[in-house]
């Protein structure tokens, strides 16, 4: 889902902008290093491909069709860093040209759909591409990528104070799961079709990392995405956790300082607490994703 402007509270979008900007910068540099300059047109054209691919309908149920979202497909063809850059470019075009998604919340959308989603979608492939589980990994990647981005978006909305009755939330989660399954099936079918045309286009990861570590990594990504959701539904939980860990004393001042002027404007402290808790949760997600990535990279280089 592309979050429009006006939905997220300043603390949430500001944090995510702050997270996404350097992340995209790093990824762009990495993508360029991985792929040489020749790939700049390639990345652009593949972005256009993902856009255009939405016109190709996949029949999935009686009277319903689905289409490719693309993060996982891009990751297994271009590599995860390049895929994240392409997804970022797509989101930028959608926001600026097609008014799909907001401008100040672009960082949030990029984080959900270009960074976390692509990483989650690539992890299973990264780990099981060389095994008999390859197809399952691609499928799982598709499912995970959609679930991750949707759950993150939902969590950010909740943290921003958009209320969501429990029943509605269950329905949304069910829908996310269905879209995830569709994306998994479509991605797998697409990868197979592409491979039949020219197997070179599907990049195999140089070598697979440890399976156990991989399982841990996937669990981590899923848990943080799901965890954020739960945490944001009950922000007091995470807040008290922060307190228990004895973090409050150190974190509170710098978390509160930039928000001080909102308080002046009569915003109740419950909102502030929620926002801060959410902010903290999101930083946790980021750190977790980052560390997982680092860990896997280290594993690979050994």
């Amino acid at each position: 889902m592309h979050i429009p402007d006006g939905f997220l509270s300043p603390a949430v979008w500001a944090t995510l902008d702050l997270v996404s900007v350097p992340a995209v910068g790093l990824l762009a540099r990495k993508a360029q290093r991985d792929l040489e300059d020749r790939k700049i047109p390639l990345l652009g054209v593949m972005g256009a491909f993902v856009f255009a691919a939405q016109m190709i309908n996949f029949p999935v149920g009686p009277g319903t069709t689905g289409h490719l979202v693309g993060g996982t497909l891009l990751a297994v063809t271009l590599g995860p860093a390049a895929a994240a850059v392409v997804m970022t470019a797509i989101l930028a075009i959608q926001a600026f040209v097609f008014q799909d998604g907001g401008i100040v919340v672009l960082g949030a959308n990029v984080f959900n759909m270009a960074i976390a989603s692509v990483l989650a979608g690539y992890l299973p492939y990264r780990l099981w591409a060389g095994s008999g589980w390859r197809s399952a990994a691609i499928f799982a990647g598709g499912v995970l990528s959609v679930l991750t981005s949707a759950c993150l978006a939902l969590a950010q909305l909740l943290i921003s104070g958009v209320p969501m009755p429990r029943r509605l939330m269950l329905v949304s989660l069910g829908l996310f799961l269905v879209s995830g399954l569709i994306e998994g099936a479509v991605t797998l079918a697409a990868v197979r079709a592409i491979e039949r045309l020219n197997p070179v286009w599907i990049r195999s990861p140089k070598d697979s990392g440890s399976r156990v570590l991989g399982a841990v990594a996937i669990a981590a990504v899923t848990l943080v995405a799901g965890g954020v959701l739960i945490a944001s539904a009950a922000p007091d939980g995470i807040w008290s956790l922060v307190g228990k860990l004895g973090l409050t004393a150190q974190t509170a001042p710098w978390l509160h300082a930039p928000l001080a002027d909102y308080q002046v404007n009569g915003l109740e402290s419950a909102w502030l607490r929620k926002a801060t808790a959410g902010l903290f949760g999101l930083v946790l997600v980021y750190v977790a994703c980052f560390l997982t990535g680092k860990f896997i990279a280290r594993q690979r280089s050994i």
Partner: peptide, 15 residues
């Protein structure tokens, strides 16, 4: 970053 700008530019051109 320039690479990102260029990717957007190519994307729009071939969209």
């Amino acid at each position: 970053p320039r690479p990102l700008i260029l990717v957007v530019q190519f994307l729009y051109r071939y969209l």
